[in-house]
Write a protein that binds this DNA or RNA. Sequence first.
DNA 1: TCTTCATAGTTTTTT
DNA 2: ACTATGAAGA
Length: 757
Amino acid sequence: MDFDFLNELNENQRAAVEYTDGASLVIAGAGSGKTRVLTYKIAFLLKLGIHPVSILALTFTNKAAREMKERIAQLVGEKTARYLWMGTFHAIFSRILRVEAEKLGYTKNFSIYDTHDSQSLLKTIVKEMKLDDKVYKASALHSRISNAKNNLISPKMYAADGELCKNDRIIKIPDFAQIYATYCARLRSADAMDFDDLLMQTNILFRDHPDTLAKYQEAFKFILVDEYQDTNFAQYLIIKKLAEKHEHICVVGDDAQSIYSFRGANIDNILKFKDAYRSTKIFKLEQNYRSTQTIVNAANSLIDKNENQIPKKVFSENPKGEQIIVNTAFTDIEEGSIIANKIVEFSEKYEYGQIAILYRTNAQSRVIEDALRKKAIPYRIWGGLSFYQRKEIKDVIAYCRLVSNHHDHEALQRIINVPARGIGDTTLAKLADAATAQSSTVWDILLDLPRYNLPINAGTTQKLSAFKEMILNFSEKIETLSAYKLLAEIVKTSGIIADTYSDKSPESQSKRENVEELLTAVHQFCETREKDNQTTSLPEFLAEVSLLTDQDTDKDDKTPKVTLMTIHAAKGLEFKVVFIAGLEENLFPSSFCNTPREIEEERRLLYVAITRAEEQCVISYAKSRFRNGTTSFCNPSRFLENIDEKYLDRESIGENSSEFFRKNDFWMDNNRFVPKESLPQNNYSKKRLSEITPDKTSNPNQNSTYADATTVKHSIFGIGKVVETNFEAGNEKVIVDFGAKGTKTLLTKFAKLEVIV
DNA sequence: TCTTCATAGTTTTTT
DNA sequence: ACTATGAAGA
């Protein structure tokens, strides 16, 4: 047998890979080849003859699962790798829950409520209970419920817990337990689970059905868990139960990279792993292959300031490398410009694709984007508003959900009047009230509308009936049509995007394209499943798509681009050059942090950010920043003091900031400081000025960001030349000649144009 | 009932 | 800045 690939591992890595006797904990420092150990271990097991379906490998994101599967496929072949149980906790256990749904009182087509659905449901409940929605905020309630579920506290247990209820009274939400109970009841009647249910219901399944548990214990001979430091109690317990029989469990993680406690992740899971599994053997991977010595040492000097951690000494034998550059900017806008300039400088040595800009919050991306666009630096953003969160996509998905599960109330509520068909809020409220009164669902009311004698006029009754018939008609085709064909029919006959055909605005255009993109995705789904001789019904597509929240749009554009993303999203990735922006108090660490424990997590977050860099790391902060509608002054982050000064190179202090401040040479525009000259070739001051005092009589081009005849690139239309620009109601419009693709009018705030130099 | 306009409230990180 | 809700007009 061919085990040559093991030679690519160092001694510790290899030991971890080859150990298959009992439980093992792999403590893997940043860049120490954690993923490699995991993939090779799975490949090793497969080559030993273990059948892929008896290996369960759990990852933190869909992307991680996908990539790991690809790498394993390279080692053992695609045909074998395909059968691995590999995916996120949520994806894997939703699969199992669909199979076992009836045991828990759900159907196999249960809906999955996303965060938005959950909060919308909570709002309804708060309203129904006539509580103050300012005291009972949906987001706060939801995170509380999420917390409870992740700790496996059911509504009953919650209500019975004196401590918890007393605490609720103290923070003035005494009715929380009741809300929680109603929320769960509503989910159940809608035949829906929220994200946290996927873990909680799995636990209930395993608790109440020992035979089922035994079946999966037997099935999964080997269990591997990636990013174990970020598991919560519900996940811990699922693993514990599944692994009980064979204790062939291997978890990999790094306590120094635990950054998801806000989601219930419990760092104790990794710190106390050896207490949970008595046979535990611990492997430590301490050699960092990714980064320069300077970067590793700087990161170490930072993380040393944390009290709670497993002792380890990560080291690098790579070249010493450059120092970490620290830049100070006067404003957030200038920060963006400094970063853009630096990228231009680096671009002689590095490709854009090797550069990443990381930040604490998504909101920070905007100014950076602006700066990059000015310099014509191509970039792509990860996260933010993802494809599946767009209105039109959510609408289409809601149709699918209602078609496969008539009791999905959030879906029904969303689309009963999309497109407008004369069924307004009042009518829906009448239906919903009746449903609550009958303790059934709106759909049940619709099925037998005349019987309930609701005060709804004949016209509306007719419309409701038509809607019901339409959905029923779709539902009838679930078995006979593929997901693609059915979805195409839904899009066509429901008229969701009908109005966008008559409208030539870029918004409608992009709506249509997004829906078409979704159709392409379904098409691909069907094709792949057909190849594997699997069925391709709509509910099956839905089951997959409900958990595909982000970053599935890897449009295979070949052009190298600078990557922008939050640090959380960057976990597990690496880049030659990493910029970390916004190192300011109240931003990083976030102002939401109060306890030392929370500060430690933020410090770990910066540790994660720094250790993404292979060769160059550039940190920056601004002295003033536009946030929440106002400009506020900020102080440099305390974490800057935490990094040993000898690894830092503080550049360009005051070079073009404080001086300008002194000279008063900046615009104070809408409470925002805009340095006049600090940005090379910038048009900000002009642009801003034009926005305050739109002057239609003057030549509009003078105010524009895009001069006439500028060559620009549009993601869809390609390369074109600017013909005309103007401002209308503060919106910048450009007319661009795309040659063969025609001349288009674009709103610059929607169309992301790149300036081509 | 739908559309438009105005106002208010809110912004950490994600499956 | 941006969205989400509410009020007024069509």
